[in-house]
Write a protein that binds this DNA or RNA. Structure first.
Lengths: 334, 334
DNA sequence: CTGAAAGCGCTTACAG
DNA sequence: CTGAAAGCGCTTACAG
């Protein structure tokens, strides 16, 4: 069966008995069209099931769509989902639509997906950089598309960034454990090669050095891939396990709990990132607000779209130590 | 400062010394252009930082973009994030881009955002219906845009759907508790007005009736809004608390744990939906695969884009009972 | 407040 | 394999 033809503005104008331009005005500057004419046009549009074609409008207007691209490396971490939710929320408040792409965490994927988003002429590009270098975006930036890095800074690219105070947060985590009397405090991280983990590790080291425990390298358990469970088990299943652990992110915290349960070793724990059941489990964390991070990044995008020529800005969002008991030496609450 | 002008295909053709059409072919059917000519064009494109304008291409080609819209009610539930991740994954494998919109769970919002997505001429619309009625999409469906409902069926609209076996899953949950010897088994749900909760409640009732416990209305604790913690506390903080609970979704499971901890009442528990720390906590659940749900929905969209005229299909994905200890009468493992 | 012409950047027929 | 003309659906100047 043949599908009915999609109506165009011309069809609407013809049915309403006005010029094409008048029909167009009903959608772009309705207040400039006489009320009676407007009603006539809208009635015709309803009858024909007309919906203005945003593509054509944008093309004619010179390229600036009302979409904003978000490029994420890995879709599996709940932290990034929350960031995306915050972004979506803020954008929709400004009448913008979110277009998402994920690079599956490969260098080649990041550039390919960025290219696809930019070909759709997104008004701005938000990204969680995961490739080693973002200089491939420099041409686009010069053409006026704002680029905003989220959670990690872009490399070799002049771009705005919204980050966390990773170093201060991790320092706080270690200090909380030191204050509770611990000395053998381990730091556990997967994806240790990325910026956030660099910073957090540095914060942990600062706290340890300040406490006169500078030579803690044996207590650092780092992996460049996603093997949280392996790292956690390796750290805890030793002759002399640490009495306390700083977990580098939410997934590592859960991995520590899992390993602790299996091994019946119960180290004190402060984890970076809050998570769903941390309160139920009595786990102390370095908390921050991923929704807020997304909101701030989107707000920055909205501002850059309006005023493209400003100097790049770096926003660092604070973290907060939430004590729930697991920082003490009495072991976990579960 | 003036921004440099964006290069068009014309500029590239001129610099490469070929016709506009030849330059176009390099991007649409590269195998039909002589290798030497192709290299010449690509070199010119690189020099000019040219990126083909997808909008213009789509407009000329007759409307079908390579984007797919996803309309979500509430962005806050991790379940939907996982569904979205599955969708994104499957779409990108087919060279499609995901455009997301959230309705903030209002009827008016759903229609407004659907309209925005359709104005961008998405090739298909995936949605988690939250309004009471989706008949407003019928015109668009007749124009050939596939609509696929995810997690809940669309109402008053002929659309494909990818759902869970909610009823069977909830029945299994109640049966697991019955098998463990429980009789006073409560059912707790927030958002009790939506389709999934209807079905799950029905499954619970079936199991109870079969066990000769048909009159369990006093054990049903339902709320139409999001007040999980309130429902959980009300259900457990009574003179005669239930000995076991079926939680209607992941958030209710966590709310039960929280309430149980505060009240030191420790009912057995089987929750619908798995969640991050359920294994650590030893919580038995009705598990299913939100990523898979997203993947299937996206695959259906891809198929419908290719062959639009097929009859709507309803896919029901199975659930799986995962026993971790909390179904027994000995109380929670934490 | 309304209208006829031109054009946004690309691709589709139609020729060669 | 390459080219000159027309047009996708809309809006922007330019007139009235």
């Amino acid at each position: 069966m043949a599908l009915p033809q999609r109506a165009t503005l011309d069809d609407v104008a013809r049915l309403a008995g006005v010029s094409r331009k008048t029909a167009s005005r009903v959608y772009s500057e309705p207040e400039k069209v006489a009320a009676a004419t407007r009603e006539q046009v809208l009635a015709a549009a309803r009858r024909l099931r007309f919906r203005p074609n945003t593509l054509a409008r944008t093309l004619r207007r010179g390229g600036a769509t009302s979409t904003v691209g978000l490029l994420i490396g890995e879709m599996s971490n709940p932290f990034y989902h929350a960031v995306a939710a915050g972004i979506e929320h803020e954008l929709s408040a400004s009448g913008l639509t979110l277009v998402m792409g994920s690079s599956d965490d490969t260098e080649e994927g990041e550039e390919r997906v960025a290219d696809a988003l930019l070909s759709q002429r997104v008004a701005a590009l938000l990204m969680i950089p995961s490739a080693a270098d973002q200089s491939y975006l420099d041409g686009e930036r010069q053409l006026g598309t704002p680029v905003i890095a989220v959670d990690r800074p872009a490399r070799n690219l002049l771009a705005d960034a919204v980050l966390l105070q990773n170093r201060a947060g991790a320092r706080q985590a270690a200090e909380a454990l030191l204050n509770a009397g611990h000395r053998r405090i381990a730091y556990l991280a997967s994806r240790a090669d990325i910026h956030t983990q660099h910073e957090r590790l540095a914060g942990y080291r600062e706290a340890m050095a300040t406490a006169g425990l500078g030579d803690a390298a044996a207590l650092e358990h780092l992996s460049d891939d996603d093997a949280e469970d392996t790292v956690a088990r390796a750290a805890l299943d030793t002759a002399e396990p640490p009495s306390a652990v700083v977990a580098g992110n939410n997934r590592m915290s859960v991995a520590v709990l899992r390993a602790a349960r299996e091994l019946e070793t119960r180290p004190a724990l402060v984890g970076f990132d809050d998570f769903d059941t941390a309160d139920v489990l009595g786990i102390s964390v370095i908390s921050h607000d991923p929704l807020e991070m997304g909101r701030r990044a989107a707000a920055l995008a909205v501002e850059r779209i309006a005023r493209p020529t400003t100097v790049p800005e770096v926003i660092e969002l604070p973290t907060r130590l939430v004590l729930r008991g697991s920082e003490s030496s009495t072991g976990l609450a579960f």
